[in-house]
Every structure is written in C-alpha cells, then in structure tokens.
C-alpha cells in the first residue's frame, strides 16, 4: 500500500494537521447536479474521466476513477472519514464517482453540489502549494472542458455562496488549550466578522471531538485566490499564537499529568471507543507539540487519527463490523502502533 498524504506531517504540523483546497467548477452546457438524475451524472463523470486521461499522461496514470456504486457503504464512509469526499456524497452512491490519485492527496468529487469539486489535501500548513496543484489540474481539465464562467460572477456554482473563484481553503487546527480555557466561541465569533469560519471538524459546535477545528474562508467573490490564501494564512498564524498563549496559561503539572495518563491508556487499554481514542490521541498530540513526549511522532498520530475511525476499520477488518469487537480491535491496533 502506498503512503498516503495524511501519513506525513508538514509545516507547523503539531498544530496545523492539514490544509485543504477546494475548487468548485461546473460544465457550461449541463444543468447543475441537483437537476440531474443518476444516468446524467454518469455522462458527466465520464467527461471528467476522459478529460483527465487526455491530459498529460504522467498525471493521468496517477489517477483512478472510482464509482461509489461499486464500493461497499463502509468503503465510501471511510473515504468521508478521511475527508476525501463529503459525508452527504458518501451516503448517495447512485451515479456518483470520484477521481482519486494514488496517495489520496487529490480528489475530484463529481456531481456533488457542483459538477466538479476538486480537492487537494496536504499535511501541515501548505496553502499556496496546495492551491497551485489544484490550479494546475483545473487548467489541465479546462483544456478540454468548458467551465461555466461569467465576467461578473466568475465561476458559476450551484450555490451562490461559492461564486467567483469557487475557492474554499481550509486548515484543520488542533486547539486543545483554547478549548480548555473556553476561548473557542469568542474566537469563532470574531473570525466570522472578518470572513472566516471556525468550527469543529467532528461533532457539533459544543466541543469538537479531539479538539480539531476547521478554519476556512467564507468569501469567494470579489477577492482573488492569492489574497484569499494570504488572508487565511495570516489568520491561521494568529490562531496558532492564541493557542500557544492559552497553553502558557494552563497549569504545567496538570498538562504533564493529562498527557501521560493518555499515553498510559493508549499503550495499555484493551477496549477503546472512538470517542475515547480521539480524546487521548489529542492529548498525545499536545504532548508532542509541547515537548513532553518524544517517542511518538506526529506522523503516527496522523495515521492513527485516520485509520482508527469506525468505517475505516470496518472497511479493512471484517471483525470490526460488531461495535464491541471494533473497540477491542482499535485498542489492539493502537497498542501495536505505539509499541
């Protein structure tokens, strides 16, 4: 199995788990996806598949078209857990497909809310690099496909919130100290006033699972791509500073205790629910970031954070279908990986 993008760590990788770039595009001559049936979606899927293949052959060889109809539901959900496709998309396989590269860092979701949702994922903070890669693929596709575009509104999208550049850039941040000092809500309020969204990656607004938060730009019209990326980068650095300041405020001994308790549990537990796993792996990440733990790498934390999710376990291990067995298996895999 080839190394996946999320099994690596990048710039500021202790706090910035990953970067995601998404470009929305639509084919000029077809109605937007909500007006298409499964057969029509398949026609559009194959147009994109052909366009990828016609392009530069070295790129083309790296990609596979995956029909969601041919996956079992757990495989599709597992892709959603790893952020390759959206959860809504995974739940509706009929006529849906995705073009995916080998290390899973590039995913072309077809006929989701737009004909094309081109996503580039990268470990750590890498907004410009990820955007440039997305732009390269988009340009390649536009050699053979005509994307709906107007001088006034830019790239036309099914939902007007994505008009303009069609760009949504986001970073996944680990903010355990800000969460603990109760700073998330006011921060997210402030950010939304200046055009950014901060919300929990998993679960609802009150307390995100594993203290993981998604920070993204809200606006795509009237702002060019690089300005939007620069703004997000600036805001990301400010949030990182705030998280670091919050860490200074916490009682040092209490942090050490919390980190090592989690270390003990993950190394020894025999039954591990997904919620418990996320809580403890969050403390491990904090411990690595603060120099408390040195024998576990951020890469290991990233691998586990992806692989220990329910559907991903089920798609790989038959015995994981039963939830009690799954928790036992999760504990075993975590122990082995931290040995």
């Amino acid at each position: 199995m080839s190394v996946k993008w999320y099994e690596k760590s990048g710039d500021l990788g202790d706090i910035v788990v990953s970067t995601r770039i998404r470009l929305a595009r639509n084919l000029e001559q077809y109605p937007f996806p909500s007006r298409l049936n499964a057969e029509q979606r398949k026609v559009i899927n194959s147009l994109f598949e052909d366009a990828m293949k016609k392009g530069n052959s070295t790129i083309a060889n790296d990609f596979d078209f995956i029909s969601l109809e041919e996956l079992n539901p757990f495989e599709a959900r597992s892709m959603a857990e790893r952020h390759l496709i959206s959860p809504e998309f995974a739940a509706r396989p009929e006529g849906h497909g995705v073009i995916l590269n080998k290390d899973n860092s590039i995913a072309l979701m077809l006929c989701e809310e737009d004909h094309l949702r081109l996503q580039v994922l990268s470990p750590g903070l890498a907004l410009n690099e990820a955007y440039e890669l997305a732009e390269k693929i988009e340009s390649l596709l536009s050699e053979t496909l005509n994307f709906a575009f107007s001088q006034r509104y830019g790239y036309l999208t099914e939902c007007p919130t994505n008009l303009g550049t069609g760009l949504r850039a986001s970073v996944m941040l680990h903010l355990p100290a800000l969460e603990q000092v109760g700073g998330i809500q006011s921060l997210s309020k402030t950010l939304s006033k200046v055009g950014f969204t901060l919300r929990g990656t998993y679960g609802e607004n009150s307390g995100a699972l594993g203290a993981l938060y998604q920070l993204s730009n809200q606006l795509s019209l009237g702002i060019d791509e690089y300005t939007a990326l620069d703004n997000l980068k600036g805001i990301t650095h400010q949030v990182i500073e705030q998280e670091k300041a919050a860490r200074e405020k916490l009682d040092e001994m209490a942090i050490w205790d919390k980190v090592f308790r989690s270390y003990g549990i993950l190394k020894n537990a025999r039954i591990l629910s997904s919620k418990e796993f996320f809580e403890h792996i969050s403390n491990i990440r904090l411990g690595i970031s603060m120099g408390i733990i040195s024998d576990i790498s951020i890469e290991t934390v990233n691998v586990l954070s992806n692989d220990m999710q329910a559907a991903t376990l089920i798609s790989r291990y038959d015995e994981a279908k039963d939830s009690a067995n799954r928790d036992i298996l999760r504990a075993k895999l975590v122990r082995e990986s931290l040995k």
């Binding site: 857990e81 679960g203 609802e204």
Partner: peptide, 18 residues
C-alpha cells in the same frame, strides 16, 4: 454525540455545505 460520531458520516459537519 457518540453515536453521531460512531456512525461517522452523519455526525460530521460538512464545512462546505451552504
């Protein structure tokens, strides 16, 4: 919250759904 997270896809907040 646990069941939503365990089910996986239904519990997520999709940042791009607008």
């Amino acid at each position: 919250r646990d069941c939503a997270a365990e089910i996986g896809f239904n519990g997520f907040i999709n940042p791009f759904s607008s």
